[in-house]
Simulated assay, not measured.
Amino acid sequence: MDPIEAAMWRAGVPRSRTTGLAAYAVTEAVADGVLALGQTVIVDAVNAVEEARGQWRSLASRHGVPLVFIEVVCSDPTVHRRRLGSRSRDIEGFSERSWEAVERRRAEFAPLVDDRLVLDSVVDLQSNVAAALGFLAAVT
């Protein structure tokens, strides 16, 4: 979502909470077109609120495809904060998140009620990829 929102800002759309919502709408439109072609879609988004998750459920339902949620967490706050501090996504027009912003988002995050796979980013990448592929194979 962040690259889409940043592109909107660069195109002259004023920064506001509305641009975040619009980024979800743009992503849904792109995903809708890809699904219409019979392709698979992966959406990388926080989905902090139930309305966002409902958007993806509705999209999947309209196309008759399964929807899979994979939640990535970092169980070690020290590692999480260190990674955040050294992260550089290089998204033009988009600043990196502060630790305080991450904590605010975490506090506002509506609990997921969907069946999902939870991956812990302190686990090695190879194990997490294997777990994700196994989960996807079992669900789809």
Rank of each mutant, 00 (worst) to 15 (best):
G38K: 03
V129N: 01
R87L: 02
E96M: 06
Q126V: 14
D32E: 11
A11G: 12
R81G: 04
R81Y: 11
A138I: 00
R116C: 15
S98I: 03
A132P: 00
L67V: 06
D2E: 13
R106A: 13
V72H: 07
A25M: 10
V139A: 13
V26D: 06
T40P: 09
A137W: 03
D2G: 10
E100D: 08
R105N: 05
V43W: 00
R89S: 14
V46F: 06
L59F: 05
V118W: 06
V43D: 04
L117N: 04
L67Q: 02
A23W: 04
V73D: 02
E28H: 14
L84I: 04
V72W: 12
I91A: 04
W9L: 15
F135G: 03
C74Y: 02
H63R: 14
N128Q: 03
W99L: 02
D32H: 10
A45M: 10
S88E: 14
L35M: 02
I4M: 12
G20D: 01
R53P: 06
S58E: 15
R106G: 02
W9C: 09
R81F: 04
A131M: 05
E28N: 06
A137I: 06
R57T: 11
V34E: 02
A36I: 06
V113A: 15
G33T: 02
A36W: 00
A130S: 13
W9Q: 13
V49I: 10
T78K: 12
A48T: 02
I4V: 15
P14G: 03
P3A: 01
A31F: 02
R116S: 05
A52D: 13
G20F: 01
V123S: 12
L117I: 02
A107Q: 09
R106Q: 13
V123W: 00
G85D: 10
L119W: 07
D114G: 01
A29D: 12
C74S: 00
A48M: 00
R17E: 15
V129L: 14
R17A: 15
V68G: 05
H63C: 07
Q126I: 10
V113Y: 09
E5V: 14
R81M: 06
Y24Q: 11
D32W: 01
A22G: 11
S16Y: 12
N47T: 00
D115R: 13
S121I: 03
L37T: 09
W99T: 05
G38M: 07
A52L: 09
V34Q: 07
L21E: 13
R53H: 01
A130H: 10
E5N: 13
V46W: 07
E108Y: 03
V122I: 12
R89E: 13
R97H: 12
I42Y: 09
V46Y: 03
R87D: 04
V46K: 06
R82L: 11
A137G: 09
A52V: 14
R116G: 01
R97I: 08
R116E: 02
A45F: 11
L59Y: 01
R83W: 08
Q39V: 15
R106E: 15
E108C: 08
A25T: 11
C74V: 02
R81S: 12
A22H: 12
S58H: 14
G134Y: 09
V13Q: 06
I91G: 03
L125C: 08
G93T: 13
A110G: 09
G12C: 04
P77C: 00
V73R: 13
